[in-house]
Design a protein around this nucleic acid. Structure first.
Lengths: 188, 188
DNA sequence: CGTACTTTAAGACGTTCGTCCTATTTTTTA
DNA sequence: TAAAAAATAGGACGAACGTCTTAAAGTACG
């Protein structure tokens, strides 16, 4: 059936995912994606009618990836405090990418907001997935009432670290702040 | 002399400043700026040879504006703690702009980083101006050793708040975090 | 007043963009 | 194996972009 075409579609989305992160949505052209995916430009129209449809595919892929990752953490990490630490480890593990390109979620949302793009409300679901998961962890730590606010606070903290790290290209700052966040978590 | 031409130049930069903030650098065209400044498109080339020169002008204008603002704060606010509070008030006073367009500094740096734009190193001087000023305030509070780190931390915190506020279009979150930052400052 | 210089206006230029069409190749199915 | 469907390749299309040229209008000064 659509097996072959589906593979091609996935390759386009994967290439677009990387390029949107590294170059931004607006600055990435069909040609860029075609070259990266190793397919002909004309073939795009079969899989995606517009650039927005590619963006839609990229967002959906990321949402699935994030959901899968968090589900895996839920399975393999029993202690909610350790889960929160694992979340912070994203910063240190993705250090180099953050240094060069910032946070994949925050920078995309920022760009879509400026473009007044309708799909900003799809993109911020990426934040929402993490927010809900973080909230659940804080709730398990007995922080039911503040859980939502704590989750948003942690989300924002990580965002700020990513932005400054990216602007200054300063991985040392990222490591310092990651330690600080971990200490904050332990003190909760 | 160059008085008339200088006025025109300033109008172009002022229009570009706003548009770069609201729409992003890459997504703002010469036509957009010309329309906003009320001048003919062809007239650009007399004042600026390239788009990058306009960006340069915008960054320099912002640097001057920020320097002037901080100098004014230094003059009119004697207590360093009150000065830091005034800094946080940027968030609440610019609430609506942040909600719609994020932080003017952070979003520009993010964009330039993705474009691999050479002027990222000019743009992050905007952060640097605030960082040095914040550091001076913390030092006056007797935090000499940690002053630099505290300044970067506060910078990042504000950045994160701006990004999340913008992504969710949630001014309530901004106000909540602004209070929290103020409390953190008072506890120092 | 007239000449030189500054500033503005209008638009051409080549390139790249997102989109879309169509012919061809590959794969599936009867 | 032949017909149908899925998938691919190449390129056309108008629009918009940054850049650049040139002629006209405004201004200053000897």
């Amino acid at each position: 059936m659509g097996t072959k075409g589906e593979q091609c579609r996935q390759r386009i989305i994967a290439a677009a995912d990387t390029l949107f992160y590294e170059q931004g949505f607006n600055h990435t052209s069909f040609s860029d994606i075609a070259d990266a995916a190793g397919i002909a430009r004309g073939n795009f129209y079969y899989h995606f009618k517009t650039k927005d449809e590619i963006l839609q595919g990229v967002i959906e892929k990321r949402l699935e990836d994030f959901r899968a990752m968090l589900a895996y953490w839920d399975e393999t990490i029993s202690d909610p405090r350790k889960r929160l630490r694992r979340y912070i480890q994203i910063l240190t593990r993705q250090q180099q990418d953050i240094e060069h390109y910032g946070c994949p979620i925050g920078t995309l949302c920022n760009e879509l907001a400026k473009l007044q793009h309708a799909q900003l409300n799809d993109a911020n679901q990426m934040f929402e997935i993490f927010r809900q998961w973080l909230e659940a962890q804080f709730r398990q730590l007995g922080r039911g009432r503040q859980a939502r606010h704590l989750a948003l606070h942690l989300l924002a903290w990580a965002q700020g670290v990513a932005t400054i790290t990216n602007a200054y290209s300063d991985p040392a700052f990222l490591r310092r702040e990651a330690k600080q966040i971990t200490a904050w978590l332990d003190g909760l």
